[in-house]
């Protein structure tokens, strides 16, 4: 069934964001087992089932207009959430080309791209935009190329330069991160920007992941899921605004948690940018309230077990220690305990 784009809902203030029953069904629930396992879980990003979030490289869903509006709001207050170091210019154009090409192929009802040499015409019917420009000439666009295209797409983007046997976060558009800051982490190596993650370094997880990522080849992207929890459907849980949203974690009660607490899943997608040899790291975030989530009984049961058994260190890192006991207690009603979680 073709997606219908909803009118704009909000990820702040009155938090009018909701998932339709269709959006709930296609939510990328991240736990394939009843038990939580810590693993690298990277896989080739082969096209998934039609209608699923894995069908296309860049997933556009019913929240498209809301997310675009939210990004514009963040940028109007904090324009530096988009950052491109001078040596990343070509990677920015690579990104624009990859996004325009895939969006117009995969969603012809909303996007179209006409190319005549370096004279390009981009049409975005979903936002009612049309732009003729010269590919490679930043002055022919209203914004720098990375900013121009990522203002029209869901999800955050980091562009990683590959040199000296490492990956360097030297460009990006990050307006909805799970408690990190592009402005602070920019210029860091893969090892450095993962420094705050507990446990995994000792396990050698990042060393292995880095080798794998550096070998990603053109047209053979990979993906993985990551997760945390967020209070309210708030997309901008950046470090920058932590002093504005952090207090919401202590407002969780047994009565309000079903509406307030959200599972936040990141579909991370990594693709080689052909001309620059940089790596595109896209982070597409999906939010679902517990109330919406428990409409799928197997998910409710699994989430109960995962949260119950999560090591304290990880719960602290993910920032959910404060309200975890309440949530586990509430989710217990969906878990038959002795049996497997069944559909």
């Amino acid at each position: 069934m073709p997606t219908t784009l909803k009118p704009i809902e909000s990820y702040r203030n009155d938090f009018s964001f909701r998932n339709s029953p269709e959006a709930i069904k296609r939510f990328p629930f991240p736990f394939p087992e009843d038990q939580y396992m810590y693993s690298v879980n990277i896989e080739p990003a082969t096209p998934g089932a039609p209608g699923s979030v894995y069908e296309h490289w860049f997933d556009i869903d019913e929240h498209y207009r809301s997310e675009v509006a939210e990004r514009a709001q963040v940028l109007s207050r904090d324009p530096d959430r988009c950052l491109v170091m001078p040596h990343m210019q070509q990677a920015a154009w690579d990104t624009l080309e990859m996004l325009m090409t895939h969006l117009s192929q995969d969603y012809p009802q909303w996007f179209s791209l006409q190319r005549d040499g370096d004279q390009w015409l981009w049409i975005n019917r979903a936002l009612d935009l049309q732009q003729a420009f010269t590919f490679g000439d930043a002055s022919s666009l209203p914004y720098e190329p990375l900013e121009y295209i990522t203002r029209q797409i869901q999800g955050d983007f980091a562009l990683l330069d590959q040199r000296e046997n490492n990956l360097w976060m030297d460009a990006g558009m990050v307006t909805g991160p799970a408690d990190w800051s592009l402005k602070f982490d920019a210029g860091m190596s893969f090892t450095e920007w993962h420094a705050p993650v507990p446990m995994a370094h000792q396990m050698g997880v990042f060393d292995r992941a880095l080798k794998y990522l550096m070998n990603i080849q053109v047209d053979h992207p990979v993906r993985r899921l990551n997760w945390t929890m967020t209070i309210n459907p708030r997309l901008d849980t950046s470090s920058e605004t932590f002093h504005e949203w952090g207090h919401e974690r202590s407002s969780v009660t047994a009565e309000n948690l079903a509406k307030l607490v959200h599972l936040r899943v990141e579909l991370q997608f990594l693709a080689r940018l052909p001309r620059s040899n940089a790596l595109m790291f896209s982070i597409r975030t999906y939010l679902i309230s517990l109330e919406e989530l428990v409409t799928q009984p197997q998910w409710a049961c699994r989430l109960h077990r995962v949260l119950r058994d999560l090591p304290d260190e990880l719960a602290d890192y993910k920032g959910l220690s404060q309200y975890r006991p309440l949530v586990v207690e509430w989710l217990r009603q969906f878990d038959p305990e002795m049996a497997a979680c069944s559909a």
Binding site: H87, D161, Q162, R163, E164, Q217, V218, N277
Partner: peptide, 12 residues
């Protein structure tokens, strides 16, 4: 095979 790069110029 598709192209792979083990000899890219350093962007720095």
């Amino acid at each position: 095979t598709p192209p792979a790069n083990l000899f890219a110029p350093s962007s720095r």
